[in-house]
Write a protein that binds this DNA or RNA. Structure first.
Lengths: 196, 196
DNA sequence: GTAAAAAAATACCCGGTAGTATCTTTTTAA
DNA sequence: TTAAAAAGATACTACCGGGTATTTTTTTAC
Protein backbone atom coordinates (compact mmCIF):
# COMPACT_ATOMS: atom_id res chain seq x y z
CA UNK A 1 0.00 0.00 0.00
CA UNK A 2 2.57 2.53 -1.06
CA UNK A 3 2.27 3.25 -4.74
CA UNK A 4 -1.43 3.81 -4.29
CA UNK A 5 -0.81 6.55 -1.77
CA UNK A 6 1.62 8.12 -4.18
CA UNK A 7 -0.84 8.30 -7.05
CA UNK A 8 -3.50 9.62 -4.74
CA UNK A 9 -1.23 12.40 -3.61
CA UNK A 10 -0.18 13.06 -7.17
CA UNK A 11 -3.78 13.48 -8.20
CA UNK A 12 -4.44 15.86 -5.32
CA UNK A 13 -1.41 17.97 -6.06
CA UNK A 14 -1.84 18.28 -9.79
CA UNK A 15 -5.59 18.76 -9.47
CA UNK A 16 -4.94 21.53 -7.01
CA UNK A 17 -2.62 23.30 -9.40
CA UNK A 18 -5.22 23.15 -12.13
CA UNK A 19 -8.00 24.31 -9.85
CA UNK A 20 -5.91 27.13 -8.48
CA UNK A 21 -5.34 28.42 -11.99
CA UNK A 22 -8.62 27.60 -13.72
CA UNK A 23 -11.12 27.41 -10.90
CA UNK A 24 -12.90 24.37 -9.56
CA UNK A 25 -15.86 24.21 -11.87
CA UNK A 26 -13.77 24.95 -14.87
CA UNK A 27 -11.39 22.10 -14.17
CA UNK A 28 -12.76 18.85 -15.55
CA UNK A 29 -11.92 15.37 -14.42
CA UNK A 30 -10.51 14.80 -17.88
CA UNK A 31 -8.19 17.77 -17.40
CA UNK A 32 -6.91 16.15 -14.25
CA UNK A 33 -6.50 12.78 -15.92
CA UNK A 34 -4.55 14.32 -18.77
CA UNK A 35 -2.28 16.12 -16.36
CA UNK A 36 -1.67 13.21 -14.05
CA UNK A 37 -1.50 10.49 -16.69
CA UNK A 38 -3.90 8.55 -14.53
CA UNK A 39 -6.92 6.75 -15.94
CA UNK A 40 -10.49 7.21 -14.94
CA UNK A 41 -10.55 3.86 -13.24
CA UNK A 42 -7.70 4.86 -11.00
CA UNK A 43 -9.22 8.23 -10.25
CA UNK A 44 -12.55 6.80 -9.18
CA UNK A 45 -10.82 4.13 -7.21
CA UNK A 46 -9.31 6.83 -5.02
CA UNK A 47 -12.22 9.26 -4.90
CA UNK A 48 -15.93 8.71 -4.79
CA UNK A 49 -16.53 11.76 -6.95
CA UNK A 50 -15.14 15.14 -7.87
CA UNK A 51 -16.39 16.92 -4.79
CA UNK A 52 -14.84 14.39 -2.46
CA UNK A 53 -11.55 15.10 -4.17
CA UNK A 54 -12.14 18.83 -3.76
CA UNK A 55 -12.69 18.50 -0.05
CA UNK A 56 -9.62 16.29 0.21
CA UNK A 57 -7.56 18.97 -1.50
CA UNK A 58 -8.70 21.54 1.01
CA UNK A 59 -8.16 19.33 4.02
CA UNK A 60 -4.96 17.64 3.01
CA UNK A 61 -3.18 20.29 0.99
CA UNK A 62 -4.64 23.71 1.48
CA UNK A 63 -5.21 23.66 5.19
CA UNK A 64 -1.74 22.46 6.19
CA UNK A 65 0.17 24.72 3.87
CA UNK A 66 -1.95 27.78 4.48
CA UNK A 67 -2.11 27.20 8.20
CA UNK A 68 1.60 27.53 8.03
CA UNK A 69 1.52 30.85 6.21
CA UNK A 70 -1.44 32.33 8.07
CA UNK A 71 -0.91 31.12 11.56
CA UNK A 72 2.74 30.35 12.12
CA UNK A 73 3.78 34.03 12.06
CA UNK A 74 1.79 34.59 15.24
CA UNK A 75 3.58 31.96 17.26
CA UNK A 76 5.69 33.69 19.85
CA UNK A 77 4.95 37.10 18.33
CA UNK A 78 5.06 39.97 20.76
CA UNK A 79 4.16 43.10 18.87
CA UNK A 80 0.95 42.68 16.87
CA UNK A 81 1.80 45.58 14.60
CA UNK A 82 4.97 43.87 13.49
CA UNK A 83 3.46 40.41 13.44
CA UNK A 84 0.50 41.34 11.29
CA UNK A 85 2.57 43.38 8.92
CA UNK A 86 5.17 40.68 8.51
CA UNK A 87 2.57 38.02 7.94
CA UNK A 88 0.89 40.09 5.28
CA UNK A 89 4.15 40.96 3.63
CA UNK A 90 5.10 37.36 3.56
CA UNK A 91 1.73 36.28 2.21
CA UNK A 92 1.68 38.83 -0.55
CA UNK A 93 5.29 39.27 -1.53
CA UNK A 94 7.25 36.21 -0.56
CA UNK A 95 5.02 33.18 -0.50
CA UNK A 96 6.10 31.05 -3.45
CA UNK A 97 2.92 29.05 -3.26
CA UNK A 98 0.64 31.84 -4.49
CA UNK A 99 0.82 33.80 -7.71
CA UNK A 100 -0.55 37.32 -8.11
CA UNK A 101 -2.56 36.55 -11.18
CA UNK A 102 -4.33 33.64 -9.54
CA UNK A 103 -5.04 35.15 -6.17
CA UNK A 104 -5.31 33.20 -2.95
CA UNK A 105 -6.59 29.65 -3.41
CA UNK A 106 -8.58 29.71 -0.20
CA UNK A 107 -10.21 32.97 -1.15
CA UNK A 108 -10.90 31.76 -4.68
CA UNK A 109 -12.55 28.60 -3.53
CA UNK A 110 -14.63 30.33 -0.91
CA UNK A 111 -15.89 32.80 -3.42
CA UNK A 112 -16.58 30.17 -6.03
CA UNK A 113 -18.21 27.53 -3.88
CA UNK A 114 -19.94 29.47 -1.13
CA UNK A 115 -23.22 30.00 -2.93
CA UNK A 116 -23.92 26.40 -3.78
CA UNK A 117 -21.84 23.97 -1.80
CA UNK A 118 -22.15 23.97 1.96
CA UNK A 119 -19.48 21.31 2.44
CA UNK A 120 -16.81 23.45 0.88
CA UNK A 121 -17.84 26.55 2.79
CA UNK A 122 -17.65 24.65 6.02
CA UNK A 123 -14.08 23.41 5.63
CA UNK A 124 -12.98 26.76 4.30
CA UNK A 125 -14.70 28.51 7.17
CA UNK A 126 -12.59 26.50 9.58
CA UNK A 127 -9.51 27.90 7.94
CA UNK A 128 -10.53 31.52 8.35
CA UNK A 129 -11.80 30.73 11.81
CA UNK A 130 -8.37 29.57 12.90
CA UNK A 131 -6.77 32.61 11.39
CA UNK A 132 -9.14 34.96 13.14
CA UNK A 133 -8.65 33.29 16.48
CA UNK A 134 -4.88 33.42 16.53
CA UNK A 135 -4.83 37.01 15.34
CA UNK A 136 -7.26 38.19 17.98
CA UNK A 137 -5.19 36.51 20.63
CA UNK A 138 -2.05 38.20 19.40
CA UNK A 139 -3.70 41.59 19.50
CA UNK A 140 -5.02 41.06 22.99
CA UNK A 141 -1.57 40.17 24.20
CA UNK A 142 -0.17 43.20 22.44
CA UNK A 143 -2.62 45.37 24.30
CA UNK A 144 -1.53 43.99 27.64
CA UNK A 145 2.11 44.42 26.73
CA UNK A 146 1.41 48.02 25.80
CA UNK A 147 2.34 47.67 22.17
CA UNK A 148 -0.97 49.06 21.10
CA UNK A 149 -3.68 51.17 22.67
CA UNK A 150 -6.01 49.60 25.20
CA UNK A 151 -9.02 51.02 23.37
CA UNK A 152 -8.38 48.91 20.31
CA UNK A 153 -11.02 46.30 19.59
CA UNK A 154 -9.21 43.10 18.67
CA UNK A 155 -12.06 41.44 16.80
CA UNK A 156 -12.76 44.55 14.78
CA UNK A 157 -9.14 44.98 13.82
CA UNK A 158 -8.84 41.34 12.88
CA UNK A 159 -11.88 41.39 10.65
CA UNK A 160 -10.69 44.63 9.11
CA UNK A 161 -7.29 43.18 8.31
CA UNK A 162 -8.69 39.93 7.00
CA UNK A 163 -11.07 41.79 4.74
CA UNK A 164 -8.24 43.86 3.38
CA UNK A 165 -6.31 40.74 2.54
CA UNK A 166 -9.12 39.11 0.63
CA UNK A 167 -9.85 42.29 -1.18
CA UNK A 168 -6.34 43.07 -2.24
CA UNK A 169 -5.97 39.57 -3.59
CA UNK A 170 -8.83 40.40 -5.88
CA UNK A 171 -7.15 43.53 -7.11
CA UNK A 172 -3.97 41.65 -7.70
CA UNK A 173 -5.87 39.31 -9.99
CA UNK A 174 -7.47 42.14 -11.87
CA UNK A 175 -4.30 44.14 -12.37
CA UNK A 176 -2.00 41.17 -12.57
CA UNK A 177 0.81 43.04 -10.89
CA UNK A 178 2.35 43.11 -7.46
CA UNK A 179 2.44 46.87 -7.46
CA UNK A 180 -1.01 47.02 -5.90
CA UNK A 181 0.31 44.81 -3.14
CA UNK A 182 3.07 47.28 -2.40
CA UNK A 183 0.65 50.17 -2.25
CA UNK A 184 -1.65 48.20 -0.02
CA UNK A 185 1.15 47.22 2.34
CA UNK A 186 2.18 50.83 2.80
CA UNK A 187 -1.26 51.83 3.92
CA UNK A 188 -1.62 48.74 6.05
CA UNK A 189 1.53 49.78 7.87
CA UNK A 190 0.12 53.28 8.42
CA UNK A 191 -3.12 51.81 9.71
CA UNK A 192 -1.40 49.41 12.06
CA UNK A 193 0.74 52.20 13.47
CA UNK A 194 -2.41 54.14 14.23
CA UNK A 195 -3.26 51.38 16.69
CA UNK A 196 -0.30 52.23 18.89
CA UNK B 1 -38.77 48.85 -32.63
CA UNK B 2 -40.19 49.08 -29.14
CA UNK B 3 -41.32 45.68 -27.97
CA UNK B 4 -37.99 44.27 -29.06
CA UNK B 5 -36.12 46.65 -26.81
CA UNK B 6 -38.40 45.64 -23.97
CA UNK B 7 -37.71 41.93 -24.30
CA UNK B 8 -34.02 42.61 -24.62
CA UNK B 9 -34.06 44.57 -21.40
CA UNK B 10 -36.19 41.93 -19.75
CA UNK B 11 -33.66 39.27 -20.66
CA UNK B 12 -30.80 41.36 -19.31
CA UNK B 13 -32.58 42.09 -16.06
CA UNK B 14 -33.78 38.59 -15.29
CA UNK B 15 -30.51 37.06 -16.42
CA UNK B 16 -28.70 39.40 -14.11
CA UNK B 17 -30.80 38.34 -11.16
CA UNK B 18 -30.07 34.71 -11.86
CA UNK B 19 -26.37 35.31 -12.36
CA UNK B 20 -26.15 37.39 -9.21
CA UNK B 21 -27.58 34.53 -7.21
CA UNK B 22 -26.18 31.48 -8.98
CA UNK B 23 -23.06 32.75 -10.67
CA UNK B 24 -22.41 33.20 -14.36
CA UNK B 25 -21.22 29.76 -15.32
CA UNK B 26 -23.86 28.10 -13.27
CA UNK B 27 -26.66 30.00 -14.97
CA UNK B 28 -27.63 28.29 -18.20
CA UNK B 29 -29.31 29.85 -21.17
CA UNK B 30 -32.22 27.53 -20.52
CA UNK B 31 -32.49 28.91 -16.99
CA UNK B 32 -32.77 32.36 -18.46
CA UNK B 33 -35.35 31.26 -21.01
CA UNK B 34 -37.47 29.63 -18.33
CA UNK B 35 -37.35 32.75 -16.24
CA UNK B 36 -38.07 35.21 -19.00
CA UNK B 37 -40.59 33.11 -20.90
CA UNK B 38 -38.60 33.92 -23.99
CA UNK B 39 -37.68 31.32 -26.58
CA UNK B 40 -34.25 30.45 -27.81
CA UNK B 41 -34.92 32.04 -31.15
CA UNK B 42 -35.68 35.34 -29.48
CA UNK B 43 -32.67 35.10 -27.23
CA UNK B 44 -30.24 34.47 -30.04
CA UNK B 45 -31.89 37.15 -32.06
CA UNK B 46 -30.88 39.67 -29.43
CA UNK B 47 -27.49 38.27 -28.46
CA UNK B 48 -24.81 36.61 -30.48
CA UNK B 49 -23.96 34.29 -27.61
CA UNK B 50 -23.96 34.00 -23.85
CA UNK B 51 -20.81 36.02 -23.30
CA UNK B 52 -22.08 38.92 -25.34
CA UNK B 53 -25.11 38.97 -23.08
CA UNK B 54 -22.82 38.88 -20.05
CA UNK B 55 -20.87 41.88 -21.24
CA UNK B 56 -24.12 43.68 -22.01
CA UNK B 57 -25.32 43.06 -18.47
CA UNK B 58 -22.18 44.60 -17.07
CA UNK B 59 -22.22 47.58 -19.37
CA UNK B 60 -25.92 48.30 -19.42
CA UNK B 61 -27.07 47.29 -15.96
CA UNK B 62 -24.21 46.86 -13.56
CA UNK B 63 -22.17 49.88 -14.51
CA UNK B 64 -24.99 52.42 -14.36
CA UNK B 65 -26.55 51.21 -11.15
CA UNK B 66 -23.27 50.64 -9.35
CA UNK B 67 -21.81 53.86 -10.63
CA UNK B 68 -24.67 55.43 -8.81
CA UNK B 69 -23.95 53.69 -5.53
CA UNK B 70 -20.18 53.92 -5.74
CA UNK B 71 -19.67 57.29 -7.26
CA UNK B 72 -22.64 59.50 -6.54
CA UNK B 73 -21.84 59.83 -2.81
CA UNK B 74 -18.70 61.70 -3.71
CA UNK B 75 -20.43 64.41 -5.69
CA UNK B 76 -20.20 67.62 -3.75
CA UNK B 77 -18.75 65.83 -0.75
CA UNK B 78 -16.50 67.94 1.40
CA UNK B 79 -15.19 65.77 4.17
CA UNK B 80 -13.69 62.51 2.82
CA UNK B 81 -14.00 60.82 6.19
CA UNK B 82 -17.72 61.34 6.20
CA UNK B 83 -18.14 60.72 2.50
CA UNK B 84 -16.31 57.40 2.51
CA UNK B 85 -18.00 56.19 5.62
CA UNK B 86 -21.44 57.11 4.37
CA UNK B 87 -20.86 55.49 1.04
CA UNK B 88 -19.73 52.29 2.67
CA UNK B 89 -22.59 52.31 5.11
CA UNK B 90 -24.99 52.81 2.30
CA UNK B 91 -23.41 50.08 0.19
CA UNK B 92 -23.39 47.52 2.95
CA UNK B 93 -26.44 48.32 5.01
CA UNK B 94 -28.95 50.18 2.91
CA UNK B 95 -28.55 49.32 -0.73
CA UNK B 96 -31.60 47.29 -1.68
CA UNK B 97 -29.91 46.05 -4.80
CA UNK B 98 -27.42 43.81 -3.02
CA UNK B 99 -28.06 41.00 -0.59
CA UNK B 100 -25.60 39.87 2.05
CA UNK B 101 -25.71 36.24 1.11
CA UNK B 102 -24.93 36.96 -2.52
CA UNK B 103 -22.22 39.53 -2.08
CA UNK B 104 -21.48 42.30 -4.53
CA UNK B 105 -22.26 41.42 -8.14
CA UNK B 106 -19.26 43.29 -9.48
CA UNK B 107 -16.96 41.53 -7.08
CA UNK B 108 -18.52 38.15 -7.79
CA UNK B 109 -18.13 38.50 -11.51
CA UNK B 110 -14.59 39.72 -11.28
CA UNK B 111 -13.63 36.82 -9.12
CA UNK B 112 -15.42 34.30 -11.28
CA UNK B 113 -14.37 35.51 -14.70
CA UNK B 114 -10.94 37.01 -14.20
CA UNK B 115 -9.01 33.79 -14.70
CA UNK B 116 -10.41 32.91 -18.07
CA UNK B 117 -12.18 35.77 -19.74
CA UNK B 118 -10.24 38.93 -20.49
CA UNK B 119 -13.26 40.75 -21.88
CA UNK B 120 -15.11 40.59 -18.61
CA UNK B 121 -12.10 41.66 -16.58
CA UNK B 122 -11.65 44.65 -18.79
CA UNK B 123 -15.15 46.06 -18.40
CA UNK B 124 -15.14 45.31 -14.71
CA UNK B 125 -11.80 47.00 -14.39
CA UNK B 126 -13.30 50.16 -15.81
CA UNK B 127 -15.85 50.14 -13.03
CA UNK B 128 -13.28 49.96 -10.25
CA UNK B 129 -11.18 52.46 -12.13
CA UNK B 130 -13.94 55.02 -11.99
CA UNK B 131 -14.50 54.36 -8.33
CA UNK B 132 -10.85 54.77 -7.54
CA UNK B 133 -10.57 58.00 -9.45
CA UNK B 134 -13.44 59.78 -7.80
CA UNK B 135 -12.38 58.66 -4.35
CA UNK B 136 -8.82 59.84 -4.78
CA UNK B 137 -10.08 63.19 -5.93
CA UNK B 138 -12.30 63.50 -2.90
CA UNK B 139 -9.42 62.73 -0.57
CA UNK B 140 -7.15 65.23 -2.24
CA UNK B 141 -9.74 67.92 -1.83
CA UNK B 142 -10.22 66.92 1.78
CA UNK B 143 -6.52 67.36 2.36
CA UNK B 144 -6.59 70.85 0.95
CA UNK B 145 -9.60 71.73 3.04
CA UNK B 146 -7.81 70.48 6.12
CA UNK B 147 -10.26 67.69 6.87
CA UNK B 148 -7.47 65.19 6.91
CA UNK B 149 -3.73 65.26 7.37
CA UNK B 150 -1.55 66.46 4.52
CA UNK B 151 0.68 63.42 4.86
CA UNK B 152 -2.09 61.05 3.85
CA UNK B 153 -1.53 59.29 0.55
CA UNK B 154 -4.79 59.41 -1.37
CA UNK B 155 -4.11 56.48 -3.69
CA UNK B 156 -3.02 54.27 -0.84
CA UNK B 157 -6.06 55.08 1.23
CA UNK B 158 -8.35 54.49 -1.69
CA UNK B 159 -6.90 51.11 -2.50
CA UNK B 160 -7.00 50.19 1.16
CA UNK B 161 -10.65 51.10 1.45
CA UNK B 162 -11.61 49.39 -1.78
CA UNK B 163 -9.86 46.22 -0.71
CA UNK B 164 -11.68 46.26 2.56
CA UNK B 165 -14.97 46.52 0.76
CA UNK B 166 -14.35 43.58 -1.52
CA UNK B 167 -13.10 41.51 1.34
CA UNK B 168 -15.93 42.19 3.72
CA UNK B 169 -18.40 41.28 1.01
CA UNK B 170 -16.77 37.90 0.95
CA UNK B 171 -17.17 37.47 4.67
CA UNK B 172 -20.76 38.48 4.43
CA UNK B 173 -21.33 35.66 1.99
CA UNK B 174 -19.59 33.15 4.18
CA UNK B 175 -21.38 34.11 7.37
CA UNK B 176 -24.61 35.11 5.71
CA UNK B 177 -25.22 37.85 8.24
CA UNK B 178 -24.91 41.60 8.33
CA UNK B 179 -23.27 41.50 11.71
CA UNK B 180 -19.84 41.27 10.12
CA UNK B 181 -20.71 44.41 8.20
CA UNK B 182 -21.40 46.27 11.42
CA UNK B 183 -18.13 45.15 12.94
CA UNK B 184 -16.30 46.14 9.81
CA UNK B 185 -17.93 49.56 9.68
CA UNK B 186 -16.87 50.33 13.23
CA UNK B 187 -13.26 49.70 12.46
CA UNK B 188 -13.50 51.53 9.17
CA UNK B 189 -14.69 54.56 11.09
CA UNK B 190 -11.76 54.28 13.49
CA UNK B 191 -9.36 53.98 10.60
CA UNK B 192 -10.81 56.95 8.75
CA UNK B 193 -10.61 59.10 11.86
CA UNK B 194 -6.94 58.25 12.11
CA UNK B 195 -6.50 60.13 8.86
CA UNK B 196 -7.48 63.40 10.45
C1' DG C 1 3.91 -19.90 -5.74
C1' DT C 2 -0.78 -18.81 -5.52
C1' DA C 3 -5.16 -17.00 -4.27
C1' DA C 4 -7.37 -12.98 -2.88
C1' DA C 5 -7.60 -8.30 -2.67
C1' DA C 6 -6.03 -3.86 -4.26
C1' DA C 7 -5.13 -0.83 -7.98
C1' DA C 8 -5.66 0.56 -12.56
C1' DA C 9 -7.28 0.38 -17.47
C1' DT C 10 -11.10 0.54 -21.07
C1' DA C 11 -15.30 1.30 -22.88
C1' DC C 12 -19.48 3.06 -22.36
C1' DC C 13 -23.76 5.95 -20.84
C1' DC C 14 -26.58 9.76 -19.87
C1' DG C 15 -27.84 14.36 -18.96
C1' DG C 16 -27.05 19.02 -19.65
C1' DT C 17 -25.69 23.01 -22.39
C1' DA C 18 -24.34 26.29 -25.98
C1' DG C 19 -25.42 27.09 -30.32
C1' DT C 20 -27.83 26.46 -35.31
C1' DA C 21 -31.14 25.98 -38.94
C1' DT C 22 -35.38 26.72 -40.37
C1' DC C 23 -39.89 28.04 -40.24
C1' DT C 24 -43.76 31.33 -38.53
C1' DT C 25 -45.60 35.44 -36.85
C1' DT C 26 -45.60 40.25 -36.09
C1' DT C 27 -44.16 45.15 -37.17
C1' DT C 28 -43.00 48.71 -39.94
C1' DA C 29 -42.84 51.71 -43.77
C1' DA C 30 -44.52 52.92 -48.33
C1' DT D 1 -52.90 47.10 -48.16
C1' DT D 2 -48.94 44.83 -48.83
C1' DA D 3 -44.20 43.56 -49.22
C1' DA D 4 -40.10 43.42 -46.68
C1' DA D 5 -37.76 43.27 -42.62
C1' DA D 6 -37.79 42.43 -37.75
C1' DA D 7 -38.87 39.48 -34.00
C1' DG D 8 -39.85 35.21 -32.22
C1' DA D 9 -40.90 29.99 -32.13
C1' DT D 10 -39.53 25.04 -32.75
C1' DA D 11 -36.80 21.38 -33.45
C1' DC D 12 -32.74 19.90 -33.77
C1' DT D 13 -27.23 18.98 -33.32
C1' DA D 14 -22.82 18.32 -31.39
C1' DC D 15 -20.16 18.15 -27.61
C1' DC D 16 -18.60 17.89 -23.11
C1' DG D 17 -18.61 16.39 -18.43
C1' DG D 18 -19.39 13.45 -14.50
C1' DG D 19 -20.07 9.03 -13.43
C1' DT D 20 -20.57 3.61 -13.98
C1' DA D 21 -19.70 -1.22 -15.34
C1' DT D 22 -16.56 -4.40 -16.44
C1' DT D 23 -12.25 -6.26 -17.29
C1' DT D 24 -7.27 -6.53 -16.63
C1' DT D 25 -3.07 -5.99 -14.15
C1' DT D 26 -0.44 -5.57 -10.07
C1' DT D 27 0.40 -6.25 -4.92
C1' DT D 28 0.07 -8.42 -0.82
C1' DA D 29 -0.33 -12.07 2.50
C1' DC D 30 0.18 -16.68 3.45
Amino acid sequence: MKKAEATRLDILRKAFELIYVKGYQNTSIDDILARTQVTKGAFYYHFKNKDEMGIAIINELLKPSLANAFIEPFREAQDPVEAIYRMMHHLLMENAFMKVEHGCPASNLTQEMAPWHAGFSEVLGELTGQWEKVMIKCIEQGKKAGHIRAGVNARQVTLFVMSGYWGIRNFGKLENSKSVYRTYLKELRAYLLSLR
